[in-house]
């Protein structure tokens, strides 16, 4: 993965800035340069797309996790809040 775009941005630059780019924490001018780099660099485009997809998949997977009812009951019991157990919708 060694590639330098004509504007001087390298694959290494993209990698170092990948997280900040995904999180929208970069200056607009830097974002534009990274975008231009990815237009000419298939590998960096793939790394960007698959990384954002990876984050999304974990968010989708884990947000489905729920506390099992018996775990919730034992927690409320441990905290002496049993009488509030029925309040959940």
């Amino acid at each position: 993965m060694i590639h330098t775009h004509e504007n001087g941005i390298t694959c290494q630059d993209l990698l170092l800035n990948l997280s900040s780019y995904i999180d929208g924490d970069l200056e607009e001018s830097m974002c534009e340069e990274l975008k231009r780099h990815m237009e000419g660099c298939q590998n960096c485009r793939v790394v960007f797309d698959t990384t954002t997809r990876t984050i999304y998949l974990y968010q989708s997977r884990i947000e489905r996790d729920e506390i099992p009812p018996e775990v919730r009951e034992r927690l409320y019991s441990k905290l002496n809040l049993d009488d509030f157990l029925k309040t959940k919708a």
């Binding site: 990698l15 590998n43 793939v46 790394v47 797309d49 997809r53 998949l57």
Partner: peptide, 28 residues
């Protein structure tokens, strides 16, 4: 910096496939 090695583009696979039961186990 950590260097990516896997370069296949799977990002456009349908979500049903990306998150099927087997894939969920792999994520875990």
């Amino acid at each position: 910096t950590y260097q990516p090695k896997e370069m296949a583009d799977w990002s456009a696979l349908p979500e049903a496939q990306l998150l099927d039961v087997e894939a969920q186990k792999q994520l875990d």
